[in-house]
Nucleic acid binder design. Structure first.
Lengths: 330, 330
DNA sequence: TTGTAGGCGTTATCAA
DNA sequence: TTGATAACGCCTACAA
């Protein structure tokens, strides 16, 4: 049950610790027979290297941090899964922090990243985060990549979907079907992602000669958004189409529409931006623009690993192409 | 941008490193004015302790590992969130591993836990894991707690919902409504959790004088289960009620029932075991037995922290009480 | 091809 | 109340 160290192996094999160290890391200087002896003994005794010691010595931790503003059920799980997968393949482990949309906790988490000497950080900012003052310093010492909820800048690398375009594409589908009364549901109003998507919606409408109506552009938490939507219904102000900028909002309106006995797409057309699971929960299946957490995570991992290896990024601010998935709700 | 060390502070204040170390950790031996001087300088210089060094020295990592067999969208996200929250409060950080339902990767992850000297491990076993041979050794050196997908045993602590009871309760609701033709949908057939829940279903039926029919007890991945269900429908073998053991299966049948124009609950009653989100996606809202990831995670955190502090557990094998949430699908 | 020795930053022990 | 020193396990110049 005792944990053997390199010194133990050295003593047992009557060689020096450095020989063991080198043999275990397959150093070319060490002879094949020595390597064999060392490996065999290591196996026998169940020798496990002590990362704490090695990482301390080498000043890296083999940890990559993921800081999330929230953990919803739609987008972030697939990010966690795909990101863990990718960095694991590259020999890193994943340390997950949760800022709960608090700037203070975001900073606290970043501090922990420094203390743990993580090798890289993938961050989606909290809804309270409006600038990157607190990031500029840390970005100087640890590779940092912003994703999904980003703050546009040219100092820190980012990867995100083209928010304006994705919303534009969604609403364009509705425009092409001739909808005039379109209601858009968005997240927290101070988030760049919400603002961009709302802009995309309005641009699409204007390009198709439709005037956006301000009370049909709704921002907030899921609950707030639903309340406002109910208020509209209560005064018989019904849209002919609804655009939801997230899965979370989609599942909210679904329940509401059914309660009001509005059928999809006959009474109300529905389109959303989605990770891709929830549109298939419903019948008819919902038409959506795919925003794949998996793709974001994979590309983020690739970028971050490049930064860690100090390879230059071809493009510091990467955009993911949205992709329309036509189903039956429009 | 340089990272200051205790030695730096010592040099600047003309005291010894040990004094700095003690002052920073608020050791009673150190005088108040010294502490003040030290803290002030540390603040000024932005001194950040090096966890790698401290943890190495203290032989702990302040890391708690969470090893998940998969990352679905329903149950595990709330576990991650609540668990991170709790252990963060206790000064630990969360390192997340994903075994992808592979025993090999589960073992590899456990190995990494040793190498990182994590202070505790919360594990939900992979679907390939059928015994705990690979766990007994590690459990001797690192506090280990199994949750959700557990293997019953009396050596390693576990926390899980009372699987048999939760399924019994669900099916009992159907029995009381007089259903005779009940179809049960379950996960991987080799998982203890699936077998227990199927047993609970059958017990409830038998207790109410109904004979379970074998082709109405379906095991497998979501896809496999759906295929079998479709096969039944295709030969006009319709149940009057369906019990789904997970959210994943619930959303699967919903789509299917709508396609077949079966209305809920008039044509088919539906009940499931759920984390609590997905039943409200649908209309009518689905009746379910709540299996809260949050509650599991909170109690798991509490237990694991106790193990880490070497406090004895009152009960090594804890069960969570299921809770019926009556809605409109039965 | 292998050994020696020093040091990474922190903490604990012992001494002053 | 503070200081000196050694040690944690590993890695890597440098020496042999």
């Amino acid at each position: 049950m005792k944990r053997y160290t390199i010194k133990d192996l050295a003593r047992l094999l009557q060689v020096s610790p450095s020989t063991i160290s080198r043999a275990l890391s397959d150093h070319p200087d060490i002879g094949d027979k020595t390597k064999k002896r060392v490996r065999q003994l290591a196996d026998e005794l169940g020798y496990k290297p002590n990362y704490l010691a090695a990482n301390f010595r080498k000043k890296n931790s083999k940890l990559i941090a993921l800081i999330l503003p929230e953990i919803n059920m739609f987008f972030f799980p697939s990010v966690i899964k795909a990101f863990e997968e990718k960095i694991h393949q590259a020999g890193f482990s994943l340390i997950v922090f949760h800022s709960n949309n608090s700037l203070e906790r975001e900073m606290e988490n970043l501090e922990l990243c420094v203390q743990f000497s993580v090798d890289g950080i993938l961050l989606s900012v909290s809804s309270q985060t409006s600038n990157l003052e607190h990031l500029s310093e840390i970005a100087g010492s640890i590779p940092l990549l912003l994703f999904d909820r980003v703050i546009p800048n040219d100092a820190i690398a980012t990867i995100t979907i083209d928010d304006r375009k994705v919303a534009y594409q969604a609403v364009e589908v509705l425009m092409k079907k001739g909808h005039k009364k379109v209601c858009g549901l968005f997240g927290a109003p101070n988030l760049h992602i919400s603002k961009e998507r709302a802009k995309g919606m309005q641009e699409a409408m204007i390009d198709y000669g439709v005037t956006p109506e301000s009370d049909f552009i709704i921002y907030g938490t899921k609950k707030e958004v639903m309340t406002q939507l109910i208020n509209l219904f209560d005064v018989s102000r019904y849209p002919t189409a609804i655009f939801a900028m997230s899965d979370d909002l989609l599942v909210g309106i679904y329940q509401l529409l059914a309660q009001h006995q509005l059928s999809i797409p006959d009474d109300v057309a529905v389109i959303c931006i989605s990770e891709g699971d929830s549109p298939d929960f419903f019948f008819p299946k919902v038409t959506y623009i795919k925003h794949s957490g998996e793709e974001v995570a994979e590309r983020a991992a690739q970028m971050l690993l490049q930064l860690i290896e100090k390879k230059p990024l071809l493009n510091k601010n990467q955009l993911i192409e949205p992709q329309l998935v036509m189903q039956d709700s429009v």
